[in-house]
Every structure is written in C-alpha cells, then in structure tokens.
C-alpha cells in the first residue's frame, strides 16, 4: 500500500515534470500569482467553498512550484471590493479567480483588475458584463430543480401531492424553484404549498410541522437544500407520518450523501450544486499558466442525480459541508 502510493506520487511527479520540461526554460523561471477571492464562511455552502479553495491552494502549489495562490475571504460585497483593491495593489496578479458576492457591485472593481492584463475567472455568480471574464465556471441551478423534478415525476407516476420549501429570496432560489416548477407543471402532480424557510434547519422543521398539520396527505417533500432537508426529516419522523414517500433536498451535503450511500428509502437521491466548483475553477486557471492548456470560455457543471452508485464521487468526508 505504502509502496503503491509512493509509486503513484513518483509517477505523478514525473508527469508534472514532463509537462513542464517543454516550456521549462521560461516557465520555471517565471513565477505566477493567482489570487482567489471568495465569500467568508457564513453558512454550510460557503464553508464548503472556503474548505475546497484552501485544499486546492495546497494541491496546486505542491504540483506547480512556480505558481503562488493567494486565497482571500470577504464577509460582504463592500469588503470584497476592498480586498480586491488590496490584492491588486500589493501583488502583480497574473490571474484572479472570483466568486462575486453580488453581480452589480463587483463588476466595476473586477473590470479594474482586468484592465491590468490579469486573467479573470468568474465562479458561480456572473458579472453584469460577461465580456470582462476570460473563464466562467458555474453550477446549474435550473438543472438542480429540473433534474429532481424529473426523478420525482417518474417515481410518483406523474401524479400526487407535494410540498416545497424555499430558501432565501435570491436569484439562486428563484432559478431552482423555476426549474422544478416547470417540470412539475407538465405532470398531474399538485404543489400543495410553497413557503420560505431561509435555508435554515430550524425554520424548515417548523414549516414542515405546519405543512403536516395543514395537509392530511403529502406524497413527497422537496426541501431544495440539504440543510433544510435535515429539519424536514426530523419533523416528519416526530409526526410519524407514513404517507410521505420521498423527502428530497439538493446541494450534496455530506450527511445527506451518507444517507444516499446507505440506500435510504425516502431520500435515495440528491442533486449537486457543489462548493468544490471553486476548486475546478482554480485548477483550470492554473492549467492556463502551467499546463499550456487554453482555458477561455464558459464551463457549466452539470447537476446529475447523486445515486447510491455514484455517491462516492460526491463524498468528501473531511469537508465541513
């Protein structure tokens, strides 16, 4: 086992070295700086973003010694603008990977950075002016809703009564709900109720208790987020309701993937909107400089169903999310 890992490490080192020797003379002399600007960890998903950004920083710096990655977190849009100014003032930035807090407020400051010839990678939330970015990496919120809805329509045989929990009123939430509703509307499934629970476990628990009191028959629940799903499951278990066949979330939270892996009957799937997309974006940006692989364009991560068969690929036991 030990030998094998060593062997693998040697092998990968050789591959990296091989890849680099081509442009060895210039590439190894030239140092590259990649700045990564992301929201601070305030809830599960952004916590995952911070975790994956830090992991990717270590891995990229180990693989390419001539690339320096700087990860900077910001707690608000204003703080992110300030940290962009600091980053570009104190460093010669070759690339900027940014997950903008808001589209409108960050467009100007990112354009400023881009005017210095910095390679711009935008993640998740797009800027108001897409021409600024060189690379765009994002998940597909409409697909998160739509793929879950397709699965549910098939499993319920196209009819039944369901309830839906919404997150915080934002574009992300709107897109998910829209993707979901568009598919459901084409079937005979009836959405009994849809209310906000702010992506919060406690509020999801409370709301689900009220749903259970209000509707004597519910075939399935879509919580739109795995954090909320945990609150929903607790409320349903306490009420001892046997009519609910499926309880689904979304995002690919660690605890829920564990349930999917274990073949839970009521939660057999989840849909990823993975915080690890920040790592995908960082690797692609690094490849632009170290791997001689052109990386300009848009890259949309799909939202395939997470099933017991493929759950391992989406499971990061060390990640907080």
């Amino acid at each position: 086992m030990k030998l094998r890992t060593k062997g693998a490490a040697l092998l990968s080192a050789a591959i990296v070295a091989g890849a680099l020797t081509g442009a060895a003379a210039q590439a190894q002399d030239k140092e590259y700086t990649i700045a990564v600007s992301i929201p601070a960890a305030t809830h599960g998903w952004t916590g995952g973003v911070v975790y994956h950004a830090q992991e990717a920083e270590k891995q990229i710096e180990a693989a390419y010694p001539n690339i320096d990655v700087i990860v900077s977190t910001a707690s608000s849009a204003t703080a992110q603008v300030a940290s962009l100014e600091d980053l570009s003032a104190t460093n010669e930035l070759d690339a900027l990977v940014i997950l903008p807090f808001t589209s409108e407020e960050l467009t100007g400051p990112v354009e400023q950075v881009a005017s210095n010839g910095t390679f711009i990678t935008v993640v998740d939330r797009g800027l108001s002016d897409p021409s600024i970015q060189d690379l765009y990496v994002a998940g597909d919120n409409i697909a998160v809703g739509a793929n879950t809805a397709k699965w549910l329509v098939e499993k319920l045989g196209g009819k039944g009564e369901i309830v839906v929990l919404r997150g915080i009123p934002t574009v992300i939430d709107d897109e998910r709900i829209k993707g979901f509703q568009d598919v459901i509307d084409q079937s005979d499934i009836k959405i009994l109720d849809i209310q906000y629970a702010n992506w919060n476990q406690d509020e999801a628990f409370t709301l689900m208790q009220d749903y259970l009191g209000k509707y004597p028959n519910i075939d399935a629940v879509w919580a739109n987020d795995d954090d909320m799903l945990l609150g929903v499951i607790e409320a349903v278990d306490q009420a001892g309701r046997g009519d609910i066949k499926y309880m689904l979330g979304g995002n690919g939270m660690k605890q829920v993937i564990e349930m999917v892996k274990a073949g839970d009957e009521r939660t057999p799937i989840s849909t990823p909107y993975p915080p690890s997309m920040i790592a995908s974006a960082m690797y692609m940006t690094a490849a632009q400089f170290a791997g001689q692989a052109p990386m300009r364009g848009s890259f949309k991560l799909d939202a395939p169903l997470i099933t017991p068969e493929n759950a391992d690929q989406f499971y990061f036991p060390d990640s907080p999310f």
Binding site: H43, W199, N200, Q201, D202, F205, E234
Partner: peptide, 12 residues
C-alpha cells in the same frame, strides 16, 4: 434534542 446539531445559523 430537537435537531441534534449546531450550525452557524443556529439562533440567528
């Protein structure tokens, strides 16, 4: 005992 967990949004 209700949800058995603490998260950064607990009690917000």
């Amino acid at each position: 005992p209700r949800l058995g967990a603490a998260t950064p949004t607990t009690g917000q």
